[in-house]
Design a protein around this nucleic acid. Sequence first.
DNA 1: GCAACACATAGACGGATGTCGATATATTTC
DNA 2: GAAATATATCGACATCCGTCTATGTGTTGC
Lengths: 107, 107
Amino acid sequence: MSLPQCCPAPPNPSLDDSAAGDLASVLNAIADPVRLRLISMLSQVDERCACDFVDSLGVSQPTVSHHLKVLADAGLVSRRKQGRWVYYSLERAELAELSRCLQPAPD
Amino acid sequence: MSLPQCCPAPPNPSLDDSAAGDLASVLNAIADPVRLRLISMLSQVDERCACDFVDSLGVSQPTVSHHLKVLADAGLVSRRKQGRWVYYSLERAELAELSRCLQPAPD
DNA sequence: GCAACACATAGACGGATGTCGATATATTTC
DNA sequence: GAAATATATCGACATCCGTCTATGTGTTGC
């Protein structure tokens, strides 16, 4: 004799542990208010130099530099150095692919 | 006389601080490997009782309960209690809207 | 009512994260 | 070469986060 069951079939995880970790890393990179505002500003233009963000965001220059590095490490922005300045631009293809990863399958 | 400028115009943050915080909260809810696997499993079926996840994910029952609460608080899953069991289901509309939020504007 | 079960909550603990000031590195300009 | 500028890195600090064990709460079945 057996106890009553809650679900007819056991679940099968479609996302393996490694893939879930990779996706979580990229999501963590954008799951921050300052970094979302960086992305928002970058989405409006081709590129923007780092010094501009310091005035707009109300955080210190090292903090902006830190957040830009997190985004760059995740592959969401790219750097271009020119003279004194470093220009950052949005990797729109990466962001679009991330958006697709979250789309749920139709019901 | 003026120093050379890096960018022609000052940046205007399109995403205000409050909206960025709200979006970051929801993104934080899914930016975790365990929670991504929960969502992945839920996306395959209509609903699933909580006990099934414990065996599949290799973490303790309280940990699963904690992660399901984070997802529920973010509005990404909903709960339905029936007898001893609690059935969770994916809020596909919320996930779809989140996906749209990340879509970058075309270049 | 009592034992077994499903789930949630509380508390503790270690590690990751966001922020800052201070400083280093590289570039321009005089 | 020296001063000024733009950015990155370092080290410190407080806070947050994921995990666990222990325990509480509600439900089922004998």
